[in-house]
Amino acid sequence: TRVETATETAWISLVTALHLVLGLSAVLGLLLLRWQFPAHYRRLRHALW
């Protein structure tokens, strides 16, 4: 049971790290898009909202 718990903890930390990385890359990508294509971003936002 001790090994299982350790594996579970490792998986949880791995998944958390993955989610953090994905979230950060998504935010960075959005910022980059907004910085590179302001007109396109505004049009996209206008279409979405």
Rank of each mutant, 00 (worst) to 15 (best):
T1C: 11
R2Y: 13
R2Q: 13
R2W: 11
R2P: 12
V3D: 00
E4S: 13
E4I: 14
E4R: 13
T5V: 03
T5N: 02
T5L: 01
T5Y: 08
A6N: 06
A6R: 11
T7F: 09
E8M: 06
E8N: 02
T9Q: 09
T9N: 09
T9V: 12
T9K: 11
A10S: 10
W11N: 02
W11C: 06
W11E: 00
W11I: 05
W11F: 09
I12T: 10
I12M: 08
I12D: 01
S13W: 14
S13G: 14
S13V: 14
S13N: 08
S13E: 03
L14R: 03
L14D: 03
L14H: 03
L14M: 14
T16I: 12
T16Y: 03
T16L: 08
A17L: 11
L18P: 06
L18D: 05
L18C: 03
L18A: 02
L18N: 02
L18G: 01
H19L: 03
H19D: 05
H19W: 03
H19A: 05
H19R: 02
H19F: 00
L20Y: 04
L20D: 03
V21G: 08
V21C: 13
V21N: 01
L22H: 03
L22Y: 00
L22R: 01
G23Y: 06
G23F: 13
G23H: 00
G23L: 14
L24N: 01
L24H: 09
S25C: 15
S25V: 10
S25Y: 01
S25E: 04
S25R: 06
A26R: 05
A26W: 08
A26V: 10
V27A: 10
V27M: 10
V27P: 04
L28H: 00
L28I: 02
G29A: 14
G29R: 02
L30C: 13
L30T: 08
L30Y: 07
L30H: 07
L30I: 11
L30Q: 02
L31G: 03
L31I: 11
L31Y: 12
L31E: 02
L32H: 12
L33A: 12
R34E: 04
R34N: 06
R34A: 08
R34Y: 03
W35F: 15
W35A: 15
W35T: 15
W35L: 15
Q36D: 07
Q36V: 15
Q36R: 15
Q36A: 15
F37A: 08
F37T: 05
F37P: 00
F37L: 10
P38R: 14
P38F: 08
P38H: 10
P38A: 15
P38T: 06
P38S: 12
A39E: 15
A39F: 09
A39R: 14
A39S: 11
A39Q: 15
H40L: 09
H40R: 08
H40Q: 11
H40E: 08
H40K: 09
Y41N: 04
Y41F: 14
Y41L: 09
R42C: 07
R42E: 12
R43N: 09
R43Y: 07
R43I: 02
R43F: 07
R43E: 08
L44G: 03
R45G: 02
R45Y: 10
H46C: 14
H46Y: 08
A47E: 01
A47W: 10
A47Q: 08
A47M: 07
A47G: 07
A47P: 06
L48A: 07
W49L: 00
W49M: 11
